[in-house]
């Protein structure tokens, strides 16, 4: 999936195969399936990813982010979706 195909109208959640480890800068995300490691470099993004599954859509989740940072966070989520760290809700 490319960033362009990331549908903010859909609900996403953290992949059950991914472990998030809190770090001073944000968190490390490790995918036990594809063995990818991602650095989430701001705590606000970590919080957003953790709470993603509680929102009906990515758009709803992004509404909790200050408007001027929304595009940046949307791109970050698209990147995480691309590496299967987050996946569409069932």
């Amino acid at each position: 999936m490319s960033a362009a195909e990331f549908d903010v109208g859909r609900g996403y959640r953290l992949n059950p195969q991914v472990a998030l480890r809190p770090e001073p800068f944000g968190a490390l995300a490790y995918h036990f399936g594809n063995r990818k490691l991602s650095f989430l470099k701001v705590p606000e993004l970590v919080e957003l990813v953790r709470e993603l599954g509680e929102h009906a859509s990515v758009e709803d989740a992004l509404a909790t982010v200050p408007e001027q940072r929304r595009s940046q966070f949307r791109n970050a989520l698209a990147s995480l979706a691309n590496s299967d760290m987050i996946r569409p809700q069932d």
Partner: peptide, 11 residues
């Protein structure tokens, strides 16, 4: 304005 990347991927 260069956008800071919030996610960096690498094992």
């Amino acid at each position: 304005v260069e956008e800071e990347l919030l996610v960096e991927e690498v094992i």
